[in-house]
Design a protein around this nucleic acid. Structure first.
Length: 553
RNA sequence: GCGCCUGUAGCUCAGCUGGAUAGAGCGUCGGACUACGAAUCCGAAAGUCGGGGGUUCGAAUCCCUCCAGGCGCACCA
């Protein structure tokens, strides 16, 4: 609808130019907005104000010239307002047509093609396999997963990936932590270092170890068994992470292991490639990547003086491989505390001759957990963090995912456990879900009364949808695909959440004021069609957010 | 010190690539269930868009500056 109106304006403007009424060098795209106030029409454009200087006439005069040339049955009237706005009122017949189109699209409604089949990879969560997922990872999982869903329906070819940091010092520490707990549980006195993983989950894994191997490793030195302990701990933890994510409704296309980068020689290969480009140098016994050539504020070490590689070395090899795999856009979802890492990663892309916009980093801000308005203290160091599992078990998956998507990713989120699980009106999750369940009830009621619920819309009946509320709902439905496009292009899934709350916010009052199923058969048919369209749109939208659309609650 | 994020109603937040008189929800107060689900709806009060400059026909939105909070500035991951 929006595109069609834009074309009508564009045509009118071009006609004015051809007729010599205005002279304009460059024609900007026609931008339409939805005015806040309804007396300003269904759409409005500022094109006359934008072009007035170029066209050397007043905005209102230019608007008049354009409006005179607008000729379409879709536009019932046009007004020039204020400093030069052109307000456009769409004929209701076209809103009825729109409703029919939406219903005819069926399950396909919402599918758009801004992605044009381009390959995009979304890498998210990627939590180190050193402990269970906490609430912050949950937010990243919700954002990454629904973003991937939205990109998919917007026409991108999406791959979801989890990067496993399974090498390096932290892995050693994990193995040592397990070995220490193992010995401790078998009665040895141990000193547990400050920087080791202190969470109780390590003890649980140690118990597993004991039940499987007994005291077998008690007499072994750490060197002899460290690999085994590390590997054991990691695989148990990783299995737990996978289960948590699966239960959260998140599944990945690919689990990419850091150690595979080394096995395939990609880390050294990447460093070699940069060396050939003259971007590598040695200093103080270390090997450096000259990222300052590409906007970073200092150069970065790839190989330390002790011969081991840095995390960054793995990461550039990993991201180079993403490019090799043919992704045209690479999305990384990171915790906001990693934002300082972005410039050096962008530097890699530029070094490899790619536009830095190829990499889109989405930062996930912290989640503050509250209970009834009171903050719950969290400290990873002491091991008393709140896990995703705990929150999911307490408030449920739907509420959890919905809450994570109620804010834009880079804004702090207050997550109140009591609010999230309350079935009271102030809980927005249920507001949207209830709308879906309620419409389902209407459908069932209609069937029970012997009313036929139409599968395909009957255009003739639609004219009975004459109420302002009904037209408003159709207009909102017509926005759905625009919301999908914007959420995809701006990579902001929270917009979809807001859209669904708005749509439900139009439907509930309508329901309370007007009856759907009455003795008036054509009116009933029309209203059931409207209901069906709302129901489908809400179901589709919730589905993209990873939230269920229940038929009963 | 430098960089990034945030600052909008009592609270939590929207506000699309600058547009018209600033938008929700919660909370507060007052109302609505003998016809499709009251997890709903109706009504009321509530704002110096952190402060100050600038750009422009027009700024919550862009630029500068200051203030407040958070987070980063490793041969850690």
């Amino acid at each position: 609808m929006k595109d069609r109106i834009a074309r009508i304006i564009d045509d009118a403007l071009r006609r004015a130019i051809v007729e010599g009424r205005v002279s304009v060098e460059r024609l900007p795209p026609i931008i339409l907005e939805r005015p806040r106030r309804e007396e300003h029409g269904d759409f409005a454009t500022t094109i006359a104000m934008v072009l007035s200087r170029q066209a050397r006439c007043s905005p209102r005069e230019l608007a008049g010239i354009i409006v005179e040339r607008i000729d379409s049955p879709m536009v019932s009237r046009c007004e020039i307002a204020g400093p030069g706005f052109i307000n456009i009122f769409v004929d209701r017949a076209y809103w009825w047509d729109t409703l029919c189109e939406i219903l005819n699209r069926g399950d396909d409604y919402g599918r758009v093609d801004v992605g044009k089949g381009r390959k995009v990879q979304v890498e998210f969560v990627s939590a180190n396999p050193t402990g269970p997922l906490h609430i912050g990872h949950g937010r990243g999982a919700a954002v990454g997963d629904s973003l991937a869903n939205i990109l998919k329906i917007a026409g991108f070819d999406v791959t979801k990936e989890y990067y496993i940091n399974d090498t390096g010092r932290q892995m050693e520490i994990l193995g040592r932590s397990l070995f220490l707990r193992y010995r401790e549980l078998l009665g040895e006195k141990v000193v547990f270092p400050e920087d080791h993983y202190r969470g109780d989950y390590i003890k649980d894994i140690a118990r597993d170890m004991i039940s499987r191997y007994g005291k077998k490793f008690l007499s072994s030195s750490e060197d002899e068994v460290l690999d085994r302990f590390t590997h054991f701990a990691m695989s148990v933890i990783l299995d737990g992470i996978k289960k948590d994510l699966r239960d959260f409704g998140v599944d990945f296309d690919n689990w990419y292991s850091e150690s595979s980068l080394f096995e395939r020689g990609l880390v050294m290969e990447t460093i070699e490639e940069l060396r050939k480009m003259g971007l590598i140098y040695h200093r103080d016994g270390a090997v450096w990547f000259r990222t300052t050539d590409f906007g970073d504020d200092k150069d970065r070490v790839l190989i330390k003086a002790d011969g081991s590689t840095t995390y960054f070395a793995s990461d550039i090899a990993y991201h180079r491989d993403k490019l090799v795999r043919g992704f045209s856009t690479i999305v990384d979802v990171w915790g906001a505390d990693h934002h300082g890492y972005e410039p050096r990663m962008k530097a890699l892309f530029r070094a490899l001759g790619r536009d830095e916009s190829t990499l889109r980093v989405i930062f996930i801000q912290l989640v503050s957990l509250l209970r009834g308005g009171e903050p719950i203290s969290m400290s990873t160091r002491k091991g008393e963090f709140v896990t995703l599992r705990e929150v999911m078990d307490e408030v449920g998956r739907d509420a959890c995912r919905f809450f994570f998507l109620m804010r834009k990713a880079d804004a702090h989120l207050d997550f109140d456990l009591e609010l999230a699980k309350s079935q009271a009106p102030e809980n927005p999750v249920y507001y949207v879900q209830y709308c879906h369940a309620r419409i389902n009830s209407i459908m069932e009621f209609a069937v029970s009364r012997g009313v036929e619920v139409p599968d395909t819309p009957e255009r003739g009946c639609m004219e009975r949808l004459a109420l302002k509320e009904e037209i408003d709902i159709i207009k909102k439905l017509a926005e759905f695909e625009e919301v999908i496009e914007r959420s995809a292009l701006d990579m902001e899934p929270h917009r979809l959440t807001f859209y669904l709350m708005e749509l439900a916010g139009l439907f509930h009052p309508y329901y309370n004021r007007h009856r759907v199923v009455t003795d008036d058969v054509p009116l009933t048919t029309a209203r059931l069609s409207l209901c069906r369209a709302v129901m489908k749109t809400i179901a589709k939208g919730l589905n993209l957010l990873g939230v269920s659309a229940p038929e009963k609650m």
